[in-house]
Design a protein around this nucleic acid. Structure first.
Lengths: 213, 213
DNA sequence: GTCTATAGAAGGATAGAC
DNA sequence: GTCTATCCTTCTATAGAC
């Protein structure tokens, strides 16, 4: 049975969804209250159930949307005509900018996944990471050989690259506090990090030529 | 007014505390239930309040203990008579081993801090990070100059080093799933990472000599 | 110190009027 | 489609017996 959407449906459903995003990202699934979401959407609590049936289903809709938004930020890495080095610089610039605009998303997504891995499992299982790895090797085979990067080390390298951009946001509460303690501010730390991270990773890769494997 | 602890006090209080650690780390502050903690400690729910007055106070006790345990793992970096390179290798070996034994702690601590930064703020504020930085510069001044490491870049480098060991655990739910997808397992990934991370960071630092500053 | 019983409030969810 | 009223459950917390 297909539901026909009217204009007001759409408006209300969107208002609810947008409010839910804010509350869930801020408080997490367990800390969020349906009443908070209703208040923020300026509607009655029972309308939430009219549109989404339950808190769990509403959360699921929000989580799928946010997680998708977060993960699709990694896509350009696989479908761009750039050298490995250019891709790394591009990635840190774009990815750190994205997170700076949405600083709570990384922590929200990572935490809800840890709390309930099943929620992400279906998404991940449907993807073929082996194929992505093959694409990478196809696009950058020569560079990988030059840098002495074997397929075995790719997961280590990829997670390392991602660590360096995501961790500051996953640990923002503490890093921000420590930076303030030494008289720095988080925003300029992130701004600096775009270039620092790229330099750091590229240096490491380049000098792998000189290190024992 | 000082409370005198009897033997049974101690036993019960410990049983409660241990149970609370398990439940809070697993479910988080918002998801944890006093009833779960009581059940796991095999005592009555009202005893929780007898010993800790409120859920919030119980959580605070647990959080302080866990956060302390997590942070003190960084201390050896500052008070050991090793070269910078030896310290980096030592750090990854010890720190990754510690987290492998307590894989949920990083995510728990980071997340609860993000949700309520005030909880950690009083701990952090009481520490003097500028002094720690000065100690580092005193111990390793020659090496820092050799690697072209200015005081300005130290926060970037330190957070990068920590990122590489902590992030895999903060993002364990997803990394584990992806690794399984390509036929690897998380434990051996972590085992490999002890050496990989040290090599990676040391390579990057060494080749900073050849890169524009 | 430990238990039973229960207060008191809040949360998710539904029924039913409009 | 939106609201009011209310149900039912769950949760923290306390009172009071032993």
């Amino acid at each position: 049975m297909v539901k026909i959407m009217t204009e007001t449906d759409k408006q209300t459903e969107e208002k609810i969804f947008d409010a839910a995003v804010i509350v869930f990202v801020e408080k997490g699934m367990d800390g969020a209250r349906m009443q908070d979401i209703a208040d923020r959407a300026s509607i009655n609590k029972s309308l939430l159930h009219y549109y989404y049936r339950s808190k769990d289903k509403l959360f699921d809709a929000v989580f799928q949307k946010i997680a998708g938004k977060v993960f699709e930020k990694f896509a350009p890495v696989f479908d761009q005509n750039l050298t490995l080095e250019e891709k790394i610089r591009f990635f840190y610039k774009e990815h750190l900018s994205f997170m700076a605009e949405n600083p709570r998303l990384p922590s929200f997504v990572l935490n809800e996944i840890n709390r309930n891995p099943a929620r992400i499992r279906k998404i991940i299982k449907s993807m073929d990471f082996n194929k992505l790895l093959m694409m990478l090797e196809e696009q950058h085979g020569d560079e990988l050989r030059m840098y002495n990067i074997t397929s075995k080390s790719i997961p280590q390298i990829m997670t390392t690259i991602v660590s360096i951009s995501v961790f500051p946001f996953a640990a923002r509460g503490i890093i921000q506090t420590i930076l303030e303690n030494i008289g720095m501010d988080f925003d300029s730390y992130i701004e600096e990090r775009k270039e620092f991270a790229a330099d750091f990773v590229i240096s490491a890769l380049k000098s792998r030529k000189n290190i024992k494997q």
